[in-house]
Design a protein around this nucleic acid. Sequence first.
DNA 1: CAGCATCCGATCTGATACTG
DNA 2: CAGTATCAGATCGGATGCTG
Lengths: 118, 118
Amino acid sequence: MKTREDYNCPLELTHDMIRGKWKPIILWQLGKGSSSLIDLQKSIHGIGQKMLIEHLKELQEFGMVDKNQFEGYPLRVEYFLTLRGRRMLDVINAMQQIGIELMVEDGKNEILREKGLL
Amino acid sequence: MKTREDYNCPLELTHDMIRGKWKPIILWQLGKGSSSLIDLQKSIHGIGQKMLIEHLKELQEFGMVDKNQFEGYPLRVEYFLTLRGRRMLDVINAMQQIGIELMVEDGKNEILREKGLL
DNA sequence: CAGCATCCGATCTGATACTG
DNA sequence: CAGTATCAGATCGGATGCTG
């Protein structure tokens, strides 16, 4: 599998780092604060456990996310953004901003307000 | 197929707009100036004609790219970024910038210099 | 030169069931 | 609660040949 060091095109590298249906929204959520797996899943509408874990794993491989594991039962982990993950929020925020503008053009202000984005 | 008006999440909307292996680099190239199909293909290393046309079509559907058709033979078209496409360059540039930083961390300055990115 | 049709393997996604 | 395994359908990507 392709790792970070294999890339010779910066745009391709970054694009691959956020590729996949759920990566941007996961980064966005973690940008709001560390989170357990279950809370992350609850906060991302529609995502399944498999996809969540799989995408988290890839985000970790690219050094954008890390986790703390706590001992004892019930099991508990805490996922959080690394410095590099925070850096990627520049891109995520820009994406979010453009999406908001387009949705406003489409008269979706109400939906955005419900989500606290407007 | 999902069109722009179907989205209720701004991040998902923008992410889908640049989804696919070649979309960011196509936008990047067109950001440097209008281009014919063949010149676009020549400037994007590794892309095939099918993928190029397919991705251009999707970029057009999302209103980021448009084209002029000229009469006569040989056929000639000119693809260019719309205002909305230019707006998306904010995201593309942010992606490019992060990618460059990561490649510098990996000691790939030489490759970047060859491409005129450093 | 610009663009379409077809075919096929690779990859992605999601549902379900299971383990520690 | 956190994480793994399996399987099937959908989508993506690329090679090739053809049309105007």
